[in-house]
Nucleic acid binder design. Structure first.
Length: 212
DNA sequence: ACCCAGGTGGCCC
DNA sequence: GGGCCACATGGG
Protein backbone atom coordinates (compact mmCIF):
# COMPACT_ATOMS: atom_id res chain seq x y z
CA UNK A 1 0.00 0.00 0.00
CA UNK A 2 2.78 2.37 0.94
CA UNK A 3 4.41 2.03 -2.44
CA UNK A 4 1.25 1.99 -4.50
CA UNK A 5 -0.25 4.99 -2.76
CA UNK A 6 3.07 6.73 -3.09
CA UNK A 7 2.82 6.29 -6.85
CA UNK A 8 -0.68 7.82 -6.86
CA UNK A 9 -0.38 10.77 -4.50
CA UNK A 10 2.11 13.51 -3.77
CA UNK A 11 2.26 14.26 -0.07
CA UNK A 12 5.36 16.43 0.15
CA UNK A 13 5.19 19.18 2.72
CA UNK A 14 1.90 17.73 3.73
CA UNK A 15 1.73 19.46 7.11
CA UNK A 16 3.06 22.93 6.27
CA UNK A 17 4.22 24.99 9.23
CA UNK A 18 6.97 27.41 10.18
CA UNK A 19 7.57 25.87 13.59
CA UNK A 20 6.94 22.78 15.67
CA UNK A 21 4.66 24.76 17.95
CA UNK A 22 2.56 25.77 14.97
CA UNK A 23 2.08 22.07 14.25
CA UNK A 24 0.93 21.47 17.81
CA UNK A 25 -1.63 24.26 17.56
CA UNK A 26 -2.70 22.98 14.16
CA UNK A 27 -3.25 19.51 15.63
CA UNK A 28 -5.86 20.93 17.99
CA UNK A 29 -7.44 23.19 15.38
CA UNK A 30 -7.88 20.41 12.84
CA UNK A 31 -9.92 18.20 15.14
CA UNK A 32 -13.09 17.21 13.28
CA UNK A 33 -12.56 20.02 10.76
CA UNK A 34 -11.14 20.51 7.29
CA UNK A 35 -7.64 21.83 6.86
CA UNK A 36 -8.97 24.71 4.75
CA UNK A 37 -10.80 26.07 7.78
CA UNK A 38 -7.69 25.65 9.90
CA UNK A 39 -5.63 27.67 7.44
CA UNK A 40 -7.80 30.74 7.91
CA UNK A 41 -7.23 30.57 11.64
CA UNK A 42 -3.53 29.93 11.22
CA UNK A 43 -3.13 32.95 8.96
CA UNK A 44 -4.92 35.12 11.48
CA UNK A 45 -2.89 33.77 14.40
CA UNK A 46 0.29 34.45 12.47
CA UNK A 47 -0.80 37.94 11.50
CA UNK A 48 -1.39 38.72 15.16
CA UNK A 49 1.90 37.27 16.30
CA UNK A 50 0.22 34.62 18.40
CA UNK A 51 2.15 31.53 17.40
CA UNK A 52 4.24 31.37 20.52
CA UNK A 53 3.54 30.17 24.02
CA UNK A 54 3.72 33.46 25.92
CA UNK A 55 1.57 35.41 23.47
CA UNK A 56 -1.14 32.77 23.69
CA UNK A 57 -1.01 32.79 27.47
CA UNK A 58 -1.41 36.57 27.41
CA UNK A 59 -4.11 36.99 24.78
CA UNK A 60 -7.60 37.54 26.12
CA UNK A 61 -10.05 34.74 25.58
CA UNK A 62 -12.62 36.65 23.54
CA UNK A 63 -10.05 37.73 20.98
CA UNK A 64 -8.69 34.21 20.66
CA UNK A 65 -12.19 32.77 20.27
CA UNK A 66 -12.92 35.23 17.52
CA UNK A 67 -9.79 34.17 15.65
CA UNK A 68 -10.46 30.45 16.15
CA UNK A 69 -14.08 30.70 15.02
CA UNK A 70 -13.65 29.53 11.40
CA UNK A 71 -12.27 26.20 12.61
CA UNK A 72 -15.48 25.37 14.49
CA UNK A 73 -15.88 24.29 18.13
CA UNK A 74 -14.24 27.65 18.68
CA UNK A 75 -14.88 28.01 22.41
CA UNK A 76 -13.46 24.58 23.16
CA UNK A 77 -10.54 24.97 20.82
CA UNK A 78 -9.62 28.44 22.05
CA UNK A 79 -9.55 27.26 25.65
CA UNK A 80 -7.65 24.10 24.70
CA UNK A 81 -5.00 26.10 22.89
CA UNK A 82 -4.72 28.45 25.82
CA UNK A 83 -4.55 25.50 28.20
CA UNK A 84 -1.75 23.91 26.21
CA UNK A 85 0.21 27.17 26.15
CA UNK A 86 -0.26 27.64 29.88
CA UNK A 87 0.85 24.09 30.56
CA UNK A 88 4.03 24.53 28.54
CA UNK A 89 4.77 27.86 30.19
CA UNK A 90 4.33 26.49 33.69
CA UNK A 91 6.01 23.10 33.27
CA UNK A 92 8.55 23.69 30.51
CA UNK A 93 9.50 27.35 30.76
CA UNK A 94 7.53 28.13 27.58
CA UNK A 95 9.58 25.74 25.46
CA UNK A 96 7.08 23.68 23.47
CA UNK A 97 9.67 21.14 22.34
CA UNK A 98 10.89 20.24 25.81
CA UNK A 99 8.07 17.80 26.30
CA UNK A 100 9.08 15.96 23.14
CA UNK A 101 12.52 15.28 24.56
CA UNK A 102 11.12 13.00 27.21
CA UNK A 103 10.88 9.23 26.64
CA UNK A 104 8.19 8.63 24.03
CA UNK A 105 5.57 6.89 26.14
CA UNK A 106 6.02 9.36 28.99
CA UNK A 107 5.67 12.30 26.63
CA UNK A 108 2.54 10.69 25.20
CA UNK A 109 0.96 10.17 28.62
CA UNK A 110 1.78 13.73 29.54
CA UNK A 111 0.19 15.14 26.37
CA UNK A 112 -2.89 13.00 27.02
CA UNK A 113 -3.23 14.55 30.46
CA UNK A 114 -3.75 17.99 28.92
CA UNK A 115 -7.38 18.90 28.29
CA UNK A 116 -8.40 18.66 24.66
CA UNK A 117 -5.52 16.42 23.66
CA UNK A 118 -6.73 12.91 22.99
CA UNK A 119 -4.89 10.01 21.40
CA UNK A 120 -4.95 11.21 17.82
CA UNK A 121 -3.96 14.76 18.67
CA UNK A 122 -1.19 13.58 21.00
CA UNK A 123 0.19 11.25 18.35
CA UNK A 124 -0.03 13.93 15.65
CA UNK A 125 2.05 16.18 17.86
CA UNK A 126 4.57 13.44 18.63
CA UNK A 127 4.93 12.42 15.00
CA UNK A 128 4.80 15.73 13.15
CA UNK A 129 6.11 18.16 15.75
CA UNK A 130 8.32 15.81 17.76
CA UNK A 131 9.46 13.62 14.83
CA UNK A 132 8.87 10.57 16.99
CA UNK A 133 7.94 7.11 15.65
CA UNK A 134 4.24 7.17 16.61
CA UNK A 135 1.67 6.21 13.99
CA UNK A 136 -1.52 8.27 14.02
CA UNK A 137 -4.54 5.97 13.90
CA UNK A 138 -7.07 8.53 12.64
CA UNK A 139 -10.64 7.54 11.85
CA UNK A 140 -9.82 7.69 8.13
CA UNK A 141 -7.11 5.09 8.71
CA UNK A 142 -9.58 2.86 10.48
CA UNK A 143 -12.04 3.29 7.63
CA UNK A 144 -9.53 2.38 4.93
CA UNK A 145 -8.27 -0.68 6.81
CA UNK A 146 -11.85 -1.78 7.34
CA UNK A 147 -13.01 -1.29 3.76
CA UNK A 148 -10.00 -3.05 2.33
CA UNK A 149 -10.59 -5.95 4.68
CA UNK A 150 -7.16 -5.52 6.27
CA UNK A 151 -8.32 -4.88 9.82
CA UNK A 152 -11.85 -4.48 11.13
CA UNK A 153 -11.46 -2.49 14.30
CA UNK A 154 -12.57 0.79 15.82
CA UNK A 155 -10.16 0.48 18.69
CA UNK A 156 -7.51 3.21 18.45
CA UNK A 157 -4.77 1.31 20.27
CA UNK A 158 -5.40 -1.86 18.33
CA UNK A 159 -5.21 -0.07 14.98
CA UNK A 160 -2.06 1.73 16.03
CA UNK A 161 -0.40 -1.46 17.31
CA UNK A 162 -1.32 -3.25 14.11
CA UNK A 163 0.23 -0.65 11.81
CA UNK A 164 3.26 -0.17 14.03
CA UNK A 165 3.85 -3.93 14.05
CA UNK A 166 4.19 -3.91 10.25
CA UNK A 167 5.56 -0.56 9.13
CA UNK A 168 9.24 0.16 9.91
CA UNK A 169 9.23 2.52 12.93
CA UNK A 170 10.80 5.53 11.30
CA UNK A 171 9.09 8.91 11.79
CA UNK A 172 9.47 9.82 8.11
CA UNK A 173 7.83 6.57 7.05
CA UNK A 174 4.98 6.83 9.56
CA UNK A 175 4.40 10.42 8.53
CA UNK A 176 4.37 9.67 4.82
CA UNK A 177 2.18 6.59 5.20
CA UNK A 178 -0.27 8.53 7.33
CA UNK A 179 -0.34 11.40 4.83
CA UNK A 180 -0.89 8.95 1.97
CA UNK A 181 -3.79 7.28 3.76
CA UNK A 182 -5.43 10.60 4.60
CA UNK A 183 -4.92 11.78 1.05
CA UNK A 184 -6.50 8.59 -0.22
CA UNK A 185 -9.41 9.04 2.16
CA UNK A 186 -9.95 12.66 1.16
CA UNK A 187 -10.08 11.84 -2.53
CA UNK A 188 -11.84 8.46 -2.47
CA UNK A 189 -12.74 7.10 0.95
CA UNK A 190 -15.00 9.65 2.58
CA UNK A 191 -18.12 8.56 4.45
CA UNK A 192 -19.72 8.35 1.01
CA UNK A 193 -17.09 6.58 -1.10
CA UNK A 194 -15.86 8.09 -4.38
CA UNK A 195 -14.58 4.91 -5.94
CA UNK A 196 -13.83 5.96 -9.51
CA UNK A 197 -10.09 6.18 -9.95
CA UNK A 198 -9.30 4.91 -6.49
CA UNK A 199 -5.94 3.12 -6.57
CA UNK A 200 -7.27 0.51 -4.14
CA UNK A 201 -10.66 -0.06 -5.75
CA UNK A 202 -9.88 -3.63 -6.78
CA UNK A 203 -9.09 -4.82 -3.29
CA UNK A 204 -11.68 -2.68 -1.53
CA UNK A 205 -14.53 -4.78 -0.17
CA UNK A 206 -16.81 -1.75 0.11
CA UNK A 207 -16.75 -0.10 -3.28
CA UNK A 208 -19.97 1.79 -3.96
CA UNK A 209 -21.91 -1.00 -5.56
CA UNK A 210 -21.44 -3.33 -2.61
CA UNK A 211 -22.42 -0.67 -0.10
CA UNK A 212 -21.34 -0.80 3.51
C1' DA B 1 -32.66 20.19 3.72
C1' DC B 2 -29.69 17.41 4.56
C1' DC B 3 -24.57 15.07 5.29
C1' DC B 4 -19.81 15.50 6.44
C1' DA B 5 -15.12 17.10 8.27
C1' DG B 6 -7.41 14.77 9.69
C1' DG B 7 -11.82 14.36 17.74
C1' DT B 8 -12.50 15.01 22.67
C1' DG B 9 -14.77 14.82 27.00
C1' DG B 10 -18.77 14.10 29.85
C1' DC B 11 -22.39 11.32 31.42
C1' DC B 12 -24.96 6.99 31.64
C1' DC B 13 -25.22 2.25 32.60
C1' DG C 1 -15.91 -0.64 28.42
C1' DG C 2 -19.54 0.56 25.10
C1' DG C 3 -23.32 3.94 23.53
C1' DC C 4 -24.92 8.65 23.20
C1' DC C 5 -24.39 13.50 23.10
C1' DA C 6 -22.56 18.45 22.82
C1' DC C 7 -19.34 21.10 20.72
C1' DA C 8 -19.79 24.83 15.67
C1' DT C 9 -18.17 26.69 11.33
C1' DG C 10 -18.00 25.90 6.40
C1' DG C 11 -18.46 23.20 2.13
C1' DG C 12 -20.87 19.75 -0.93
Amino acid sequence: MYERLGASFKVENWWPAESEFEIMIGAILTQQTTWENVEKVMTDLKANGLLDVDSLVRIDNDTLEEIVMPAGFYRQKASRIKGLAEYIKVHYDSNPLAIMNRPLEEARRELLSIRGIGEETADSMLLFAGHKPKFVAASYVSRILKRTGILDSEDYDEIQRYVESIVPPKPEIYAKFYALLIQLAKTHCKARPICGGCPLERECAFSVRKGE
